[in-house]
């Protein structure tokens, strides 16, 4: 399995850079993953989205529907794509430390 090195730290990831060690995830890791993907500044809106995805996943084992994401965080749908240029799945879910969702993503 590949490793990803960010800022001197090494993470076990899958071939597409999704974190494979759920227990090492924390805010700092989220920020590192986002930064390595070109999202340098995490605003409160970014954090609301990432944290909600994380806690939803911890409870249900899957990524939330984008509808729920908007509803629970109050972030507008169109804003989500601006906040996360790689999209909710390959962006937000990745920074939230989730494994890659199934399907065409």
């Amino acid at each position: 399995m590949p490793h990803l090195e960010i800022a001197g730290r090494t993470f076990l990831v899958d071939e597409e850079g999704f974190l494979q060690q759920p227990d090492v995830w924390n805010d700092e890791v989220a920020a590192l993953f986002a930064a390595s993907d070109g999202v340098e500044e995490l605003t409160p809106e970014h954090w609301a989205v990432v944290r909600f995805i994380r806690s939803y996943w911890e409870q249900s084992g899957s990524a939330p529907m984008v509808r729920l994401l908007c509803k629970e965080t109050g972030v507008n749908l169109r804003t989500i794509y601006k906040l996360f240029p790689a999209g909710p799945a390959k962006g937000a879910c990745k920074y939230a430390g989730l494994p890659k969702p199934d399907g065409c993503v």
């Binding site: 990524a63 529907m65 984008v66 509808r67 749908l77 169109r78 999209g87 909710p88 799945a89 969702p101 399907g103 065409c104 993503v105």
Partner: peptide
């Protein structure tokens, strides 16, 4: 539909 539309990209 493609499910990804419902889940992540509904526009």
């Amino acid at each position: 539909l493609n499910p990804r539309e419902l889940k992540f990209f509904p526009l």
